[in-house]
Design a protein around this nucleic acid. Structure first.
Lengths: 182, 182
DNA sequence: AGAAACCTACCTACTAGTAGAGTGTCGTTC
DNA sequence: GAACGACACTCTACTAGTAGGTAGGTTTCT
């Protein structure tokens, strides 16, 4: 699953094959089919695991005693950290799968949708808290700003791989935080 | 090229094949190879055409007599319009290809990078004009805000296909404009 | 007539997925 | 304590389908 996830994060689900995984982990293709009968199953399992892992980290941030601005910064760092891993060309798993949504099976697509919804809800919570405590100052709907920030991070993670990398994403995040505070 | 572009915008370059194009346009696979010898060539040609077409529209907006806020709104509408076309599941071509960047050949990847750079430059121009005229009011670097908006639009176009569609992207854009004016 | 476009027929490589046989590791029984 | 059976795991070897791409002949346009 580690190998599958890495392959998807780097080139997408359609560029990932059982053979590639086999080469990466040194176990024959057929043996992988024993654990994940179809590609659909495999992708779904990877999404579930990724979503659970990611959201656990997010919840730890949301529930921490940090101030809301620091929470938002920490949240964005999760995306930046992904870009730093390995050969620095991994984006968010669900950002990649979002592009290939039309070619995904129903259960996998539902998992991606759910990941988006869950993340936006957590972000909205951080923003709401920030507004109440006066750490943020902006007009409009927190849920919309949450959706905006999430799209920015998912899109940013993809775009900066072309130029600038994680450092560039970081500066974009800082600029966004500035906009939310003025 | 229309068929190839549509296939890429819906499912990505790796989910697009000569056979799919053949089925869509009613011309044999080998005949398509006559015009575009390799997939690399085809993708590159589609990128070039798309970038030229898109940037022409963008430049028309930038050079128009609209006020900067209206220009930004018009620019975002280009992304919204793409989502409205056909079966409402087409994202920006270069957003899709950004996800698959690692599996693209060098010339194609360079085309995508260039598209990103060109768009961010146009956006920065609109923002700069808006700051000077007092239509926008925000702290920070216009180039960074431009990169931020571009990532938001590219990411948003991908994310809203999962839920909400073009209407949702529109509300996110309006929220962003609000942030830039406060 | 010549070129551009298109065709049929084919190639090799790779895809997801299956069949069925070996291998190692258990707990259970004699 | 040794033999047994069950099971999880891995293997080799295979399938049918699809991928990108080519050779070479036919049609269509100018």
């Amino acid at each position: 699953m580690d190998a599958a996830q890495e392959l998807i994060q780097r080139g997408g689900a359609n560029a990932m094959s059982y053979q590639h995984i086999s080469d990466a982990v040194g176990i024959r293709k057929a043996s992988i089919h024993h654990h994940f009968p179809t590609k659909e199953h495999l992708i779904e399992a990877v999404i579930q695991r990724y979503a659970a892992y990611f959201l656990k980290l997010v919840d730890a941030i949301v529930d921490s005693k940090l101030n809301p601005v620091a929470k938002l910064r920490k949240y964005a760092e999760l995306f930046e950290a992904t870009l730093c891993e390995g050969q620095q060309d991994k984006a968010c798993l669900c950002g990649m799968l979002g592009a290939e949504l039309a070619t995904l099976g129903n259960p996998a697509a539902a998992g991606v949708r759910r990941f988006y919804r869950d993340n936006e809800a957590r972000l909205a919570k951080i923003l709401e808290e920030g507004l109440n405590k006066g750490a943020f100052r902006f007009k409009g709907d927190t849920k919309l700003v949450a959706a905006m920030i999430f799209s920015l991070l998912e899109g940013g993670a993809l775009v900066v791989r072309a130029e600038g990398g994680h450092k560039r994403l970081h500066t974009m995040v800082e600029q966004t935080i500035t906009l939310l505070q003025q």
